[in-house]
């Protein structure tokens, strides 16, 4: 499992340095010289809670709509891997290498890739989803939601990790919360997280549509 202290310290440091409402690494290649080929990718969730599933769904949608890569739908992933979503174990940061996927999980991911046959597998996790409520003494409460987003993209057939993602995103509700569905602000947070990853992905890999 992710060591609780290191990623939190990393995110806290990023927040401190960034001085804004969320921070961290959105999407970075491990080797800046590596060229992502505009071929195909499968997004899989490394967790099995509702927020993990939604994040994978939104990231799939964003990659499909905005990049040149062929992206496998989550429904197809589910069909190909009957026990999907599976929990993919994670490890802490080691020697400055930000690899969240536990090496012991690589054979399992290899099997998934063999079924889906894409050149890349993008594993994402949404962790520590929190709700913080603030109630003023004049009445009325507001809620802030936050989540830590982690990701690793693996290249095949080598099975090497080529990118990493680790950031925190927050979203606060407003008076409009009264008129919105229960999960609206968390959905929005996860959707924005996926959008941000794909913004960076396109910038770094130059694989945006229309290029």
């Amino acid at each position: 499992m992710l060591n609780q202290r290191y990623p939190q310290a990393l995110i806290a440091l990023a927040l401190f340095l960034g001085g804004c409402g969320g921070g961290g690494t959105i999407f970075v290649l491990k080797d800046p010289g590596y060229a992502v080929k505009p071929t195909s990718v499968t997004v899989i969730t490394g967790g099995s809670e509702e927020s993990d599933l939604k994040l994978a769904e939104y990231l799939t949608q964003e990659l499909r709509d905005r990049t040149q890569l062929k992206v496998i739908d989550q429904e197809e992933v589910s069909k190909a891997i009957p026990s999907y979503p599976i929990a993919v174990k994670t490890v802490e940061e080691r020697n400055g290498e930000v690899e969240w996927v536990d090496p012991a999980e690589k054979p399992r991911l290899q099997k998934i890739q063999a079924k889906l046959k894409t050149n890349y597998v993008f594993v994402v996790w949404s962790k520590r989803l929190k709700q913080t409520s603030y109630c003023s003494n004049r009445g009325g409460c507001s809620n802030t939601y936050s989540a830590d987003v982690y990701g690793n993209m693996l290249e095949y057939p080598s099975g090497q990790i080529v990118s990493h993602t680790a950031f925190n995103r927050r979203n606060s509700d407003s008076v409009l919360a009264l008129f919105r569905s229960k999960g609206y602000y968390v959905d929005e947070l996860l959707k924005k997280s996926a959008e941000d990853i794909v913004d960076e992905f396109i910038k770094i890999t130059n694989t945006g549509k229309g290029k």
């Binding site: 927020s51 589910s78 009957p82 569905s181 229960k182 999960g183 609206y184 968390v186």
Partner: peptide, 20 residues
Amino acid sequence: IPNYPQLVKGPYKSAYFEID
């Protein structure tokens, strides 16, 4: 059930802090 457990689409729109 072959490959149990499996995801079965459940009776909710969202489920983070409350189940809708």
